[in-house]
Design a protein around this nucleic acid. Sequence first.
RNA 1: GCGGGCGUGAUGGAAUGGUAGACAUAUCGGACUUAAAAUCCGAAGGCCCUUGUGCCGUGUGGGUUCGAGUCCCACCGCCCGUACCA
Length: 846
Amino acid sequence: MQRYTPAEIEARWQDAWEKKSVFKAVRSEDKPKYYVLEMFPYPSGRIHMGHVRNYTMGDVIARHKLATGHNVLHPMGWDAFGMPAENAAMAIGGHPKDWTYGNIDDMRAQMKPLGLSIDWSREFATCDPEYYGQQQALFLDMLKAGLVYRKEAVVNWDPVDMTVLANEQVIDGKGWRSGAEVERRALTQWFFKISDFSEELLEALDGLENWPAKVRLMQENWIGKSRGLQFAFSTVDAPDGHDRIEVYTTRPDTLMGASFVGISPDHPLAKVLERENPQIAAFCAECRRGGTTEEAIEKAEKLGFDTGIKVRHPFDTAHEMPVYIANFILMDYGTGAIFGCPAHDQRDFEFATKYDLPIISTYLPSEDADEALAAAYVPPKTEKVFYNRGFAGEQWQTGFEGIETAIDFCEANGVGQGVTKYRLRDWGLSRQRYWGCPIPVVHCETCGVVPENKENLPVELPYDVSFDTPGNPLDRHATWRDTTCPSCGGKALRETDTMDTFVDSSWYFARFTAPRAGTPTEAEDVAYWMNVDQYIGGIEHAILHLLYSRFFARAMHITGHLPKSAIEPFDALFTQGMVTHEIYQTRDAKGRPVYHLPEDVTDGRLADGTEVEIIRSAKMSKSKKNVVDPVNIIGAYGADTARWFVLSDSPPERDVEWTASGAEAAYKHLARVWSLAERIGGMEGAGEGDDDLLRAMHRTIHDVTLGVESFGFNAAIAKLYAFTATLQKSKAGADAQKQAMLTLAQLMSPMTPHLSEEIWARLGQDGLITTAPWPVADPAMLVSDTVTLPIQVNGKRRGEITVAADLGKDEVERLALEEANVARTLDGAVPRKVIVVPGRIVNVVV
RNA sequence: GCGGGCGUGAUGGAAUGGUAGACAUAUCGGACUUAAAAUCCGAAGGCCCUUGUGCCGUGUGGGUUCGAGUCCCACCGCCCGUACCA
């Protein structure tokens, strides 16, 4: 009997698949198409277990679809632009381009031994001029269609390094290299008009039935549609041109409780005051310290500055209230100004308490509640609540039923108008960095901003740049930067900002349908291959990447690069969990943590005997060293073992913890299947229990198929374990056992394709198991004559009966009550009710 | 802060509102072996000197239901996202 030798088997079958081009996707009308895509990787240089899990899941789907007669497109590429390449250039020298392409070569070499059913002929990297040149063409079309514009936006500015920082480079409000306090600074930047599509992107979520409900909900909340009242306060003693302050509120029903007005430090009025008053200038400067993330802004201590300006309440002009500049008000949302109602909003309550502002309660939680509240009472928006205070007419005395009636009332009294707003902001795409797609425009001294001519694309990145000083090398590259105007031929400067890498990943799925086309897409290819039938990736992309892609698909339709049918590019989405591992830690002399690689730890100790502290399992990361290199695992056990393990232990949407024992167990199981196949291959003659074995086989076909089709990979694998045990114990004849073994190999083939091919061949089958038709369960073999029903008394299990599957309810009830332990439990008591769920359970209620 | 998710034996997890713990790991016992490894077979949620088809048990507290791990409300803990990480 031959041993299981994955290294030899796997290389041989990968070779066979390649020779026969089984995974090459070619348009064909005689089979239904199926496009399966996993989010493409960033070429960091090493594949990690997260990649293995992600691509194995996609591979299971792709291989199953291939076996069920589909024309499958399963491509792979590289999301290759981005900061890490520049960071590497700064840290270790070298060039981002060389670093990136070197990494791609390394990662491809690490990925190929996994035996994924990928059409490698379609591979591309987003940093290929061939790709980003088409992206520039797309940008120019979008510019022409009015989908792109320029405006000011704030960035993180490092005043020491004199450079823009990414959020990631801001640590506790300080620059990661200089350690200097980061400032917010405004720059003119390019924006995509995604906000024009707010309503459409929101409404279309309903149609995405095969997306996880939580992702749709997250997108819905992100778009953040709200209905409210926009109106103006008239000011007292304000500078010229600011006799009104426009505010937006989603709670106009609390307007009677207003006690102050707050404006953003970036509000036009604040900017005027800043120029006149040094104290205000200092306060605004204080507000502009720290990072630009929403989290940092929201978590910062709420600060306000009394401008001395007053406003009049629109319903009670005698009531004047102060205008504060406040750091928590965003210029980007609403009008950049709010009214504060401390009694009915927790944040306003805290602000009012801090600055000793009146807290005017207009609602009370209940009729008999005490008016002095310890915290804000936030009345429900839709219910009528007890109204406490009013001074401007009957309506305020009785309260409102819902926000809409409050808006109607305000409109009728000439105070503002109802408006719909969205939280979604336009997408700023400018990055002040080298390693990205150049924005294809020039700045002409006479013509202003001029798009580059399409025949000059791609605007290619220059290679001769240096990273020895902070900032964007393109800014310093005179011969690249200085150019002539495509319009007038005069002196001009190239735009030196590059595009956000999210742009690259917002249309790559469409490019895979015709990766070498001389236009961004090819009409026939997108018509045939789009949409992506199954998209798979991490939950961390639930909002930005997926929303941007949905926007881009619409923009590409408008500019003629995608058909209308592809404006929702991903028919089905699956968000998979991460691969985690325990963290091993010791402490150095100063008590700082020192991390250790899993391969250096045996039984909780290092090689020198030092005991390590085991910290809760977390996402594998270089910094925590809790990384297991797939290359080592494939080397030790083979790809099939790695594939089997990442699918087996946890449901795919949840995190899976990598354990050495789990990997070992997966290997042992595959070796067991191997020797079982060897034994069965040599069997001859008849036996006993053929029918039982074949029934179990059909049940397994049914369960595994269902599991594979519904992302229940872990459950499918559990069924395969169970069936392997059944087959191992079976005394059935040679024919039945061989049939069962071949079926087992087929059912395993999406997960362990190499082992399955080898078994298929060794048991004398012609052709590839990869292209053999998927087994179908015979419904007649799935039904059983009898059924065992548990019997509960008052919800507690007291016994069971085995009855004919089609026995009537009355008869089942009679037999249930006669069951010995049930009768004993009842002890003569007469059941009040007996619930019989056919084929499931009986519950006797006493 | 805000938005979303998750929480079940020693461990990973299974369970269309219907027998909680499938399957696997670790553990323990047995077979084989001079011995060990490998392999094969088996036990196993907790409790009790009541061993009973007994009681308790799916983060905590409440609720809906004949019946709740599953649905609803509140709380606790952890994870993801938060617009320049990809």
